[in-house]
Amino acid sequence: MNQKNSLGLNKCFLDKIDPIDLFEVWMNEAKKTELNDPNALALATSDENNSPSIRMVLLKDFNKDGFVFYTNLNSQKGNELKNNPKASMCFHWKSLLRQVRINGMVKKVSNEVADEYYNSRGYESRIGAWASKQSTILNNRDELLSSIEKYKKKYSNKNDVPRPEHWSGWNLIPTSIEFWLDGDSRIHERLKYTKDNEDDWVKSLLSP
């Protein structure tokens, strides 16, 4: 029989005051059990007409200040986030039968943070940030491959590929984080943290 915490939830929820601490525990467990990309998440944005859009991206950093991912700022998601900074993330770890949903507001990371991460990427990935006009229509695949070759010639020194101004990171600053655990007969367990007016986290149990 599973042990329970003070809220009557499965012990894997722990008794954390800050949800970032619980997320770190769950992410570390996912890294051990997920075959591919435990840091993969579904990112939801919306345009000026409130039409939603969702895609998979990779989480590259997280801490008490938020959850960071990187992209072309002129891509569909980049343009949507410029116009509407509200966004939502969803992690699903099938191996653990767990899910985490995060809602909040995004802001761009500093140039220093973006430079540090960009410079840690492989040469091909750094070239790709220049070559790909993300989300725009290609006439054919060769158009992209030609662009890649052009920038390889321009930046032939693999140790000196500057970060494009149109490529950077977004930090999602959470206003709510929900942890979900699969339950027998669809009686799942859900724990939600919400920021109050004093910027403190408040925990609530949700019905499945």
Rank of each mutant, 00 (worst) to 15 (best):
148 I>E: 05
140 N>V: 01
82 K>M: 14
28 N>Y: 10
43 L>G: 03
102 I>E: 06
80 E>P: 06
30 A>S: 04
51 S>T: 13
202 V>Y: 06
44 A>V: 08
62 F>I: 00
160 D>L: 15
95 S>P: 09
20 I>E: 06
137 I>A: 10
97 L>S: 14
207 S>Q: 14
26 W>S: 02
23 F>E: 02
66 G>H: 06
174 P>T: 04
19 P>A: 01
100 V>R: 08
170 W>E: 07
66 G>L: 08
125 S>V: 09
72 N>K: 03
17 I>M: 13
18 D>V: 00
156 S>E: 08
81 L>G: 01
101 R>K: 13
197 N>C: 10
166 H>Y: 15
169 G>Y: 03
97 L>E: 13
169 G>E: 00
24 E>N: 01
195 K>S: 02
127 I>S: 02
143 E>C: 06
30 A>I: 04
132 S>W: 07
8 G>C: 08
189 E>G: 01
80 E>L: 00
61 D>Y: 10
98 R>Q: 08
134 Q>K: 01
60 K>N: 05
10 N>H: 12
25 V>H: 12
168 S>R: 00
126 R>A: 07
69 F>I: 04
53 S>K: 05
141 R>T: 00
63 N>Q: 09
199 D>Q: 15
88 S>F: 01
29 E>L: 04
85 P>E: 10
85 P>K: 03
103 N>I: 03
35 L>I: 12
51 S>H: 12
123 Y>L: 10
117 Y>K: 03
120 S>P: 01
15 D>N: 13
180 W>D: 01
78 G>Y: 02
108 K>L: 15
39 N>T: 11
168 S>L: 05
3 Q>A: 15
115 D>V: 07
110 S>W: 11
200 D>I: 14
171 N>I: 14
167 W>V: 09
148 I>G: 00
93 W>Y: 07
105 M>T: 15
55 R>A: 01
199 D>F: 15
40 A>F: 06
90 C>D: 05
32 K>M: 15
112 E>K: 15
57 V>D: 07
180 W>Y: 09
79 N>T: 09
128 G>W: 02
181 L>H: 06
120 S>H: 10
38 P>E: 02
195 K>H: 09
190 R>L: 10
118 Y>C: 04
94 K>E: 13
